[in-house]
Design a protein around this nucleic acid. Structure first.
Lengths: 336, 336
DNA sequence: TTATATTGTTAAATCGTTATAACTATTTAT
DNA sequence: ATAAATAGTTATAACGATTTAACAATATAA
């Protein structure tokens, strides 16, 4: 695209040395195992020429030869979802700190799309994958792991699989915010969740049930499971819940929260007067409007840095060797 | 990383043909200029073998030889900002529709960071760049354009430069929402803006001034320019504005809006009773709380698809030739 | 019938780097 | 003094594709 690349050969010619030597000089700073001994004088001369000619190493060639692209693929539900957008940003920065790049792909919770983008990323030649699995991707992930692809799961995990992961302690988080609703006087608390089969949602449901049971309300639990992207059903449900005398909602995800809160207001009700609300993920306006919404603040930065750390350790540990699988569970913060 | 790549040679051996032929078969579907004539039978046989061996072309090798990576670099302010996150998603999808990938980098409005990430992306070998310029990047962008790097500017433009761009009609948008505030009875309207020197902010300020002047209020305009990421100053300003008898705010960006709205509520005031507010960019909660905030809804999908279209047309038009520069201005929608 | 196109295929160069083995020249050990 | 080790460097073969030129073999034209 640009003018013409200055190659290692140009430098070699100009500096009166062989291309190999230039290569050694260039990669000496990050010398892996064996430090190639090169004369300090020549090294300086080569670097000077490189500087003068404005040499920029060709990463494609480097990648082809070395098998390492310096890129991590990140597959998530939807990068426009604020939760993932924030993670994306931290991942970008984390990757940068390792001199790596990151390339994102969204799945919209569709396992077929998941498979597709994972394949595209692998073909592009990523050194590792950070994945937010969606329902129905267990086999794909198992395939990656057995195929020795450096894989780290984020936000959600897959049971019975030897794979590294970084997730929230969802069960504890859910229990805590449900407890908070209880302590604010609510007894009839519904949980609104997704019908997808993903670990974090299931754990959150369990936390809700834990809290209710501990409060002696095991009999009056209700989990409303909404299909992903089915907005209509939420409206009906909120109306129905109101009739049923529900006093509070515990909501499993940020997108769902916006829908439920929207329906509450549309039906002329207020928070917290008519309904108390607890949910996952922060929204700046929750605080601003002083709406009294209790929410779980996920340590998004830790998600990103830990996931990146894990995938890097996988990459470092020579492929072929057994993966240093590590499953990290992070603690939530509660606000509101 | 994975097991071992199936190469074009494996297929050649298995199918009893030469590697070249396999290459022809593989790239025949996307035959550029010259369609290489290959026997239908052999073609089928080769494809069958490829299918059986689960051949996945090595994009790195392909990129090295062909000089095309199939990747577009996107440089924006901050991918965790909802406005850019949404654009990111649309860009991802748009790229995919061209069989391309997209890699993002955030600048935090820092020209030095901008220069750095642009260089990283170029070294990685992107086929084109979509850039959201920040203040102080004019020279860098000029350098790219003269260096024949396929460049498209997004959301903001750089004056006096022959470069393709996709921006909102910011002046018209700003005028419209200011008019809306006026029609709702506000006379003392302040504009809150950033002190950065970027085209869209300047245009929005002009639109505000246009509307005020047309209403005969040229004398009572006030533009408060806040430094990027300087939260403290907003609090002081809102207090001061209240004392000054300001009735409405016209706010230049989404992040700034959240700050101003937050301060309004913190100071015990309400929207729209105490202050009317007009701003840029949607936030789902604006609608939900029925807060009566007027806002400009930017056609984010069109931003993305147009920008991708432009960069693709640059790529198609043989490098060396004159760029088909095109500057697109999109119309806003107003809600509230 | 001889010359010329056309079809189907292949050999070989190339993209820009890395990595291995080998090769001097010099130093150190014996 | 000879062998062995070391420092500094280079030649060369990859990496996995694309692409150009060339080559048979056959078909068409003159």
């Amino acid at each position: 695209m640009a003018v013409r690349q200055v190659t290692i050969k140009d430098i070699a010619r100009e500096a009166g040395v062989s291309p190999s030597l230039v290569s050694f000089v260039m990669s000496n700073s990050v010398a892996g195992k064996q430090l190639y001994r090169v004369n300090c004088e020549t090294s300086k001369r080569v670097l000077a020429v490189a500087e003068r000619l404005q040499y920029k190493p060709n990463n494609t060639a480097r990648a082809l030869r070395s098998g390492k692209t310096g890129t991590i693929g990140v597959v998530l539900s939807d990068i426009s979802n604020p939760f993932f957008a924030e993670i994306a940003r931290f991942l970008e920065d984390a990757a940068y700190s390792y001199d790596y790049n990151v390339v994102f792909a969204s799945t919209d919770e569709d396992p077929e799309k998941f498979r597709r983008v994972v394949n595209v990323l692998i073909n592009k030649g990523v050194d590792g994958l950070i994945l937010v699995p969606c329902g129905g991707t267990e086999d794909i992930i198992r395939g990656l792991v057995t195929g020795c692809v450096n894989t780290v799961l984020l936000d959600r995990t897959v049971p019975d699989l030897e794979v590294s992961s970084v997730v929230l302690d969802n069960r504890a988080a859910a229990r805590t915010i449900t407890d908070e609703l209880l302590s604010r006087g609510a007894k009839r608390i519904d949980m609104v969740s997704y019908s997808m089969q993903i670990s974090n949602t299931r754990d959150r449901e369990q936390g809700y049930l834990d809290a209710m049971a501990a409060a002696g309300l095991a009999g009056s639990t209700h989990i409303e499971r909404v299909a992903h992207n089915n907005y209509g059903s939420v409206a009906d449900y909120v109306r129905e819940a109101k009739d049923r005398g529900v006093e509070a909602f515990m909501i499993a995800t940020n997108t769902l929260s916006l829908q439920v809160i929207s329906e509450i207001y549309k039906s002329g009700c207020r928070i917290p007067e008519d309904f108390k609300v607890a949910c996952f993920d922060r929204n700046p306006l929750y605080d601003i409007y002083g709406s009294g919404i209790v929410y779980v603040r996920q340590p998004v930065d830790a998600f990103a840095s830990k996931a990146m750390e894990l995938v890097m350790s996988h990459i470092k540990s020579k492929s072929g060797k057994k993966h240093p699988v590590e499953q990290i569970v992070l603690s939530p913060e509660i606000t509101g």
